[in-house]
Design a protein around this nucleic acid. Structure first.
Length: 311
DNA sequence: CGATGGGCCCAAATTGCCAA
DNA sequence: TTGGCAATTTGGGCCCATCG
């Protein structure tokens, strides 16, 4: 890996950069950058620091994970059949009304969701002073935290996952209704900015897109993490997120849900069958109290009272 | 019509075993 | 212990037959 770290511009690497050396090299790069920045005028210094700073994420308890609602109410992180993941270019992603998402990159599934959510979680928890914008973590503990087996295949999977999250272009347009009337909000960028992987130590050094924090402004949800880890199927995970983001779920047609979660199931009957199984999973995990499908093919979901918690 | 049970197949995830 | 590898299990879409 050739080093271009003497440049005084922030690095714009998007590809994988498996540094064969330990993290101290990465730190040295950062220090060098710091020195360069220090040569600039105070105003410029402040400007750069301001731009690089990842805004504070909201805080949530350890047993939960904070997730922007737009990740839960769309097919941005959907259900994808094994072996059927595809790359798309500027595709409109299915979502609830008032939310417009365009996406370029490999389609993301519930596994990618787990990874991004855990990354955001670490971002709120990390306390390294040297480089505020980067988080550092070990593969093994990371995989454990999202309920996966550590090992070679797990490591490979995780790296693929970060590749996907890095090489994306998400464009989100939200219409917000607040006391000032209607407001439009746009986000465009990738999800993860860049990452370094140390093959020997099995550690990551990673930076999320700072703007990601702003997505929380449009509403977010505390996911019950243990509940989610109990769920086996991707559809159950998606439904868990979807219904967690609604205080009072409104009845929704099976066909609508099929569209929203990004399922490519050809026959509605088969999807209905899998949604029945997934709902049973949710009841088992204690995520919802009850559910039923009415004669109009709408799904009614009853949540437990006094449970979490959309902000 | 759709529900249910069974079966098939593909690919991914996990597990068990071995050697370093 | 750990990592690598092959065997096994699992998830999920799809199809069929049968029943209400």
């Amino acid at each position: 890996m050739k080093s271009d770290q003497q440049s005084n511009k922030p690095q714009r690497k998007t590809a994988v950069t498996p540094l064969g050396e330990n993290a101290s090299v990465t730190r040295a790069i950062k220090t060098a950058q710091e020195r360069c920045i220090n040569l600039l005028s105070p105003e410029l210094q402040n400007k750069i620091r301001e731009l690089e700073q990842i805004p504070l994420l909201p805080d949530w308890p350890d047993k939960t994970r904070g997730v922007p609602n737009l990740c839960l109410r769309s097919a941005l992180f959907g259900v994808i059949r094994r072996g059927r993941r595809r790359a798309v270019k500027g595709e409109v992603i299915a979502s609830v009304q008032g939310l417009n998402i365009r996406y370029t990159g490999w389609r993301l599934d519930q596994g990618d969701f787990d990874v991004l959510v855990q990354t955001l979680h670490l971002q709120t928890r990390h306390i390294e002073k040297t480089s505020k914008n980067y988080i550092r973590f070990e593969v093994k503990s990371f995989l454990r935290a999202i309920g996966r087996q550590p090992g070679k295949s797990g490591r490979e999977w995780l790296k693929d996952c970060f590749r996907r999250l890095t090489a994306t272009a998400v464009e989100i347009n939200v219409e917000l209704r607040n006391r000032y009337g209607n407001e439009a909000y746009t986000y465009a960028g990738s999800l993860v900015d860049e990452f370094y992987y140390n093959d020997r130590e099995h550690t990551y050094f990673l930076k999320i897109n700072p703007k990601l924090a702003e997505l929380f402004d449009a509403g977010w949800t505390q996911l019950q993490w243990q509940q989610r880890l109990q769920l086996k199927t991707d559809l159950a995970k998606w439904l868990h997120g979807f219904y967690s983001s609604h205080r009072v779920p409104y009845p929704m047609k099976v066909a609508t849900l099929k569209h929203l979660c990004g399922s490519d199931c050809k026959r509605l009957v088969d999807y209905r069958r899998s949604i029945r199984n997934a709902m049973a999973e949710l009841v088992n995990a204690g995520a919802i109290q009850a559910w039923q499908i009415d004669r109009k093919d709408k799904i009614h979901v009853q949540r437990f009272a006094n449970r979490p918690i959309s902000k």
